[in-house]
Amino acid sequence: MTTSQTDWQQLAWAGIKLLAPSDWYVTQLRVTQNESYIRMEDDDMVRFELSCATVSPIQQINLREHAEAILSKMAKEAKKRGEEFSQSVDTKLVGRHQVKGRDVLTFSWAGRYIGEGMLWWCGKCGKVLVAHVIGVKGERLKELAKKLFTSISDHSEDEWHSWKLFGLDLKVHSSMRLCGHKVEAGFVRFQFKRGDEESLEVARWSTADLMLKGTTLDKLAAQVLKEHLKKFEISYRHVQFGSSSHEGIELYGKAKMPLKTFQLFLRQLTKRSLMPKLRGLMWKCDNTNRLFLVLAITASEGMSEFEHVINSFKCH
C-alpha cells in the first residue's frame, strides 16, 4: 500500500506532533520532564518507536556517532539470536530542508524485519529525537517512513502543548508536566501537575449512554469526584457546552479546611496567599457517545488557563 492509499492520524504530546497511519495505535507512552518515548503497533507487530531527550541547545550532537552506536547494539542483539543483520548510515531519506533546518541523519537496517531510522537535533529547543519505522521484507517502507519523519514537529511555537492521544484532543500549558496516565478499555485519564498544589485532570469514558442509564450526569459526577468531595465544597450548574450544545455540568469548589499554619506562612512569604480552588466541566458528547471531564485545582489567577484548556478541547 502506498502513502496515498493510507489513512493518516495526527498524534501530539509534550510539544511533539506527527502523522502516523490510522491503523497504528499507541501501546506505550512515557513522559518525564526531559524525556519521552512512544511506541505504536498494528495488529501484527511493532511499527514505530520514537524517543526524545532534551539537552542543552548549545551542545552540538554528533548524529553519525549516535546512529552507529544504535546500529552496533542492534547488530549484536541480532547476532545473539543467530540472525543476519545489515545496515546503512546516512541514507539521505530526509534532508535539512524537509525538517525546517534541524540537523538530521537517516539510516536503515535489515534483519528479521526491516527498518528506516532517523536521528535529529533541534538547536532551538535542544531536543534529540530517535525514530524507527519498522516493516517486513518486501514492504515499501521508505515512502511511508519519509512522510512520517517529515511530519514531525519537536516543539510548540507558543506556550501551549497539544495533547492528541487515545481520543483526547486538547492543549495544556507547557509548564504543566504529565505526572500520570491510565488507559483501559473504555477509559482514559491524563493527570498534569505544576508544583505541589496545582493540577489538571482530563478523562474520557466510552459508552456514555450505558454509564448514564438509570442515573443523571450530576449524580455520576458525584461518584467520579468522591475523593475531591472530601477536600472541597463543590457546587455545580447545568450548561450547554460547545458548538453542538452538549449537555454538561460546570463545577466549582473551594477548600473545606484552611491550610496548616506553616503552609499558610510559606504562602504569605512567597506572595501566594490565595487558597486553591477547584474548577471543572463534565459533559456528554452525543456525536461520539462519550463522557469527558476536565478538572483543575489551582489558585484563582490560574483559572484563565482552565478556560483556555476548555476552549481548545475537541471531543468529536
Results as ranks from 00 to 15, higher is better:
30 R>Y: 05
30 R>H: 09
30 R>L: 09
31 V>F: 00
34 N>I: 04
35 E>M: 08
36 S>I: 02
37 Y>G: 02
38 I>L: 14
41 E>A: 14
41 E>I: 08
42 D>G: 05
43 D>M: 12
44 D>E: 12
44 D>H: 09
44 D>L: 09
44 D>M: 06
46 V>T: 14
47 R>E: 08
49 E>A: 02
50 L>K: 00
50 L>E: 06
50 L>V: 09
52 C>H: 00
53 A>G: 08
58 I>S: 14
61 I>S: 09
62 N>D: 15
65 E>D: 13
65 E>N: 13
66 H>D: 11
68 E>N: 11
69 A>Q: 14
69 A>P: 07
69 A>T: 13
69 A>Y: 04
71 L>M: 10
73 K>S: 11
75 A>D: 10
79 K>E: 15
85 F>I: 09
85 F>E: 09
85 F>Y: 15
86 S>R: 13
86 S>P: 06
88 S>R: 11
90 D>L: 08
93 L>C: 07
94 V>C: 03
95 G>I: 02
97 H>D: 15
98 Q>P: 06
100 K>R: 10
100 K>Y: 05
101 G>P: 04
102 R>Y: 02
103 D>M: 01
103 D>C: 00
104 V>F: 00
104 V>D: 03
105 L>A: 01
106 T>I: 00
107 F>D: 03
108 S>P: 03
108 S>T: 10
109 W>F: 11
110 A>F: 00
111 G>A: 09
112 R>H: 08
114 I>F: 05
114 I>E: 13
116 E>S: 01
118 M>K: 04
119 L>A: 05
120 W>V: 02
123 G>V: 06
124 K>Y: 03
